[in-house]
Design a protein around this nucleic acid. Structure first.
Lengths: 142, 142
DNA sequence: CATATTTATTTGTATGTACAAACAAGACTT
DNA sequence: AAGTCTTGTTTGTACATACAAATAAATATG
C-alpha cells in the first residue's frame, strides 16, 4: 500500500487547521440566529458572566490576543452591545441592556452547536476529542 | 469543586480554534527559514509533487476554498515561485526552478515542525491526536 | 522624589481565509 | 446547432486575527 502523495493529514498543523475551519463554519451557522458570528457571541457571554472584566482577562479566557480583543470589543461597542469604562490604565467592559436580551439566544445557539457535532461524532467521542485537544493545547502553549 | 465560569474548553469549536492558532504559530516559526509562511510552504510542496495540478485539486488536498487557492497562487506567481498555464477553463500550476531549490528547505522545516510538537506531546500521543482530529474532520465534513 | 521598568490597552498595518458574484469554457438536451 | 446547465477559476469585498509600535498608567529602583 504505497502513498502516492505526501500525506498532509498526518500533520497536526494541517489537521488542526482543517478541523478549526469546519468547526468555525458550523459555529457561525449555529450562532446565525443571534445575528453574531461565533467570536462575538463568545465575547458577549464572557462579558455577561463577568461584568467589568478587563480586556486582558477576556484575552486569557478566549485565548485570543489583546489586540484582537480590543477589535472585537470596539465592534460590539459600536453595535451597542458592550460599553467600556476607563479606570486608570485598565479598561472595564460591561454588557448593555440590549446585549443581555441576546444572552438566552446565544446560550441556545451554543447548545445547538454542541448537539449538532455530538450527533455526528457521538457524544462520548466528541468529549474525548475535545478533552484531548484541550490538553494538547495546554501543553503546547508554553 | 464548582466551576466559577462557563468552561469554554469543553467546547470543540473553542478548543479546535485554540489549538489551530497555536499550531499555526508553531508552523510559521518552523517555516521561517524558508521565507514562507506555512500555507505557502504547503502549496509549494503540493505543486512540486504534482506539477500541472489544477487549483481545484490543490483546494481538495489542502482543504482550502478555491478562491483562497487562487490568492495563494497569485502571490507565489508574483514572487516567482509558481507559474500558471491556462488550458481551456482549467488552469495548470507549475513550480519554477527557483521554487525547486526551496523544496529541500521546506521538507526540512516541515520535519522540524513534527519533531517539535512530538517532543512536547510525545510521539505516540501526537499521532493519536492527529489521527483522531483527522477522523473527526472527515465525519464533520459532510 | 525622579527616573527607569513593567504592564494594560490601543492603533497602524498586514495576512489568511471565505463568500458571493462574475466569467468562461465544456457538456447536455432537444 | 442553439440554448441551457454545469463546472473551474478568478474577482470584489469583507472579516477575524495577529504583530509591532505607540501610549499611558503603575510600580520599582536608585
Amino acid at each position: 500500500m504505497e502513498e502516492k502523495y505526501t500525506s498532509y493529514p498526518t500533520c497536526l498543523y494541517y489537521s488542526a487547521n482543517a478541523l478549526s475551519r469546519i468547526m468555525t463554519k458550523m459555529a457561525d451557522e449555529a450562532f446565525a440566529p443571534t445575528g453574531l458570528s461565533s467570536s462575538y457571541a463568545f465575547l458577549l457571554m464572557t462579558v455577561n458572566e463577568s461584568p467589568g472584566i478587563n480586556p486582558k482577562d477576556i484575552s486569557c479566557r478566549m485565548k485570543l490576543t489583546p489586540s484582537t480583543i480590543t477589535r472585537l470589543i470596539e465592534k460590539m461597542e459600536y453595535r451597542g452591545f458592550l460599553e467600556r469604562r476607563q479606570c486608570g490604565r485598565n479598561t472595564e467592559v460591561f454588557p448593555t441592556k440590549q446585549s443581555q436580551k441576546l444572552i438566552p439566544l446565544i446560550i441556545k445557539a451554543w447548545s445547538d452547536l454542541y448537539e449538532k457535532y455530538e450527533e455526528i461524532l457521538g457524544k462520548e467521542e466528541a468529549r474525548n476529542l475535545t478533552a484531548a485537544i484541550h490538553q494538547a493545547q495546554l501543553k503546547l502553549n508554553i
